[in-house]
Amino acid sequence: MREVVASIGRDKDLDVLVNDPERDVRLQVAEWGRDKDADVLVNDSDPCIREEIARQGRPRHLDLLIDDPDYSVRSMVAFLGRDKDLDRLVADPDWRVR
């Protein structure tokens, strides 16, 4: 039910749901792309949520996520194609990132 509420995107609901214990709810919140939610969710324990934050392409978040332990997050950073990220990720130890 909270996932449905998050999908509607009312600011007062998203303010609460950004810290929801349910992964799918937090992912719905992340997909709305609000800056203040991304600032929280960039450090989320779930790599799918961090990947969504990377997909949104905010430079300050990409600067953090380039060193993410999960290859899928680093792959998204590489996919966005910032030169400084590509210069580092070309030598990534995981072939799925290069």
Rank of each mutant, 00 (worst) to 15 (best):
R2Q: 13
R2K: 15
R2W: 11
E3S: 07
E3R: 15
V4S: 12
V4I: 14
V5P: 02
A6P: 03
S7Q: 11
I8W: 03
I8L: 12
I8K: 09
I8Q: 02
I8A: 03
G9W: 03
G9M: 07
G9T: 06
D11C: 01
D11I: 14
D11A: 12
D11E: 14
D13A: 13
L14D: 07
L14K: 00
L14Q: 07
L14F: 03
L14P: 02
D15H: 14
L17T: 03
V18C: 06
N19Q: 02
N19R: 09
N19D: 11
N19K: 09
D20F: 01
P21A: 03
P21G: 07
E22D: 15
E22T: 11
E22P: 00
D24K: 14
D24C: 08
V25F: 06
R26S: 05
R26T: 04
Q28H: 00
V29L: 05
V29T: 06
A30R: 04
E31Y: 03
W32K: 14
W32C: 00
W32H: 15
G33I: 04
R34L: 12
D35F: 13
D35N: 12
D35I: 15
D35M: 12
K36Q: 13
K36T: 12
K36G: 00
K36V: 13
D37C: 11
A38G: 03
A38R: 10
D39H: 02
D39F: 02
V40A: 00
V40S: 04
L41F: 07
V42A: 08
N43M: 04
S45M: 10
S45D: 13
R50V: 03
E51L: 06
E52T: 07
I53P: 02
I53Y: 04
A54Y: 04
A54M: 06
Q56L: 12
Q56A: 07
G57R: 04
G57P: 01
P59M: 08
P59K: 14
H61W: 00
L64T: 15
L64N: 06
L65Y: 05
I66F: 03
I66T: 11
D68E: 08
P69T: 04
P69S: 08
D70K: 10
Y71I: 04
S72Y: 01
S72W: 01
V73G: 05
S75Q: 12
M76S: 07
V77M: 09
V77N: 09
G81C: 08
G81P: 09
R82I: 05
R82L: 11
D85N: 13
L86Y: 05
L86S: 05
L86G: 11
L86Q: 10
D87C: 03
R88W: 00
R88G: 02
L89D: 01
A91R: 15
A91W: 10
A91M: 10
D92S: 08
P93C: 02
W95P: 08
W95L: 13
R96E: 10
V97T: 08
R98N: 06
R98W: 09
R98V: 06
R98A: 07
